[in-house]
Computed example of a mutant assay.
Amino acid sequence: MRSTISILHILVHAIFWYVVIDARTIVDSHSQPSDVKYFESNLDTNIGYWSPSTSSIDWCERNYVVTEYIAEFWNCISSFSMCILGTILFIRGLYNNVETRFLLSSLGFVLVGLGSAYFHGTLTHLGQMADELPMVYSMIIWGFILYRMNEFKQIKTKLFATDILVVFGIFYGLLWTYVHTLQTFVLVFQIHFTLMVLVALIKLIHLYRQPYHHVYRIKYLLIIHLVLLISAFVCWIIDQQLCEQMNNISQFNPQLHAWWHVFGAFHCHLGIVCGEAMRLLSIKHRQHQIKIFRSPQQSFKPDDHLHIVYYLGLPYIDYSKEKQTNKTKD
C-alpha cells in the first residue's frame, strides 16, 4: 500500500511541475493565437473588458453585446445551470451519506459549470482550459463509477485491480492536461470528448440490461437522459452550422449554445441519478445474495428496493427508508 501511494505521489508531482513550468510560456504562446475557430466569415471585433481574446475558439454569440464585462453573456449565464444542479446533488449526497464517488461526480459537475462560465465570460486561454479540462476529469470519474458499479470489495482486499484503474485515471487526466494545455486542440478535443460520452452511454445502457437494474423507473430516466443528450447535440451543431444566418438574417439569435448548456445540465443530472439508482440496486442485490445462504431462497425484486422522489420536476433517489433501516440495525 505504501509503495502504491509513493508511486502516485511521485507521478502527480512530476507531471504537475512540468505543467507549472510550461504554463509560464503558455501565456506568451497564446497571447495572440493565429489559428482561431470562428463560425462566421466576418470576425467579431467587439472590444470588452477581457479583450483581446486568447482562446482558440470563438462561439456564435456576438461578443460584449449585453455588457462590456462578459464576452458571451447568454453562454456564460446558462453555464450556471450546471453549477446549480450539481450543488443540489452534492448537498443531497452529503445529507444521505452517499459514496464518495458520487460526491466527486457532483463536484466535477459544478466545476464544469464554473469553468464554462469563466470561459464564455472571458474567451481567454486560461478560461478555455478551465472549461475543457474539468469536462475530461468529470468523464474519468464517471467512467470509474460505471466500471466499478458492481464492485463491492474494499481496496485492502483487492488492491491491485482497484489501484490500476485509479492510477490509470489519474495518469490519463494529467497527461491530457499537459498535452491539451500546450496545444489547445479544438477538433481533437471535441472528438475525444464525444467518444468518452458515447462509451459511457453504452456502458450505462449495458448496466441497465442487468436483471437487478431492470426497473421501469430507471428505463424512463434513461430515455429522457438520451433525449436530452440528442437535443443538446442538435443545438450545438445548428449553432455552429447556421451561425451566420441566425446572426444576420433572423435578427434574433436563439442562442442555441446556451441551450446546449441547459440541456446538457439536465442530461448530466439524470445520468448521476441513474448511476446512484443502479449502484443502490447493486448493493441491495449483493446483500440479497448473502441472505440466501441463511434463509429460504427468494427472488430479488429491484422495484421493492428503489424509491425515486421528484422536487420541482427533477428526480432524486429517496434514501429515507435506507437510513431508517440502518438506524434499526444500529
Rank of each mutant, 00 (worst) to 15 (best):
K203D: 07
L174H: 03
K156R: 09
I155A: 10
G169V: 03
A161H: 14
L182V: 11
F168R: 13
M196K: 03
L175F: 11
Y178V: 07
F193C: 08
G169T: 00
K158E: 15
F189C: 04
F185R: 01
L165M: 12
T184R: 13
Y178N: 11
I155N: 08
H192I: 06
V167G: 01
F171E: 01
Q154V: 13
L201N: 09
E151S: 06
V199Y: 08
L146G: 04
A161C: 14
L165I: 09
L182A: 12
Q154R: 13
L174C: 04
A161E: 15
V186E: 05
Q183Y: 13
A161Y: 14
D163Q: 14
D163R: 09
A161M: 14
R148N: 06
T162N: 13
Y172N: 02
V197A: 06
K203M: 12
L187T: 13
I170S: 04
H192V: 06
V188R: 01
R148I: 00
L187K: 09
F193A: 07
I191S: 13
L174E: 04
Y147R: 15
L204V: 08
A200D: 02
M196S: 07
L165S: 09
K203C: 11
I202Y: 08
F160M: 06
Q183C: 10
V197H: 01
L175E: 04
F152D: 02
V186Y: 10
I155Q: 08
F193S: 08
L182R: 14
A161G: 10
F168K: 11
L204P: 00
F185L: 00
L182F: 12
W176V: 14
L159S: 02
Y147S: 05
K153W: 02
L195T: 14
K158Y: 10
I164E: 11
T177E: 09
T181M: 14
G173M: 01
V167L: 12
F160G: 06
V188N: 05
K203H: 13
T162Y: 07
N150I: 09
L159A: 04
L159F: 02
T177C: 14
H180L: 02
V199K: 00
F185C: 00
I191T: 15
M149Y: 05
G169M: 04
T162C: 08
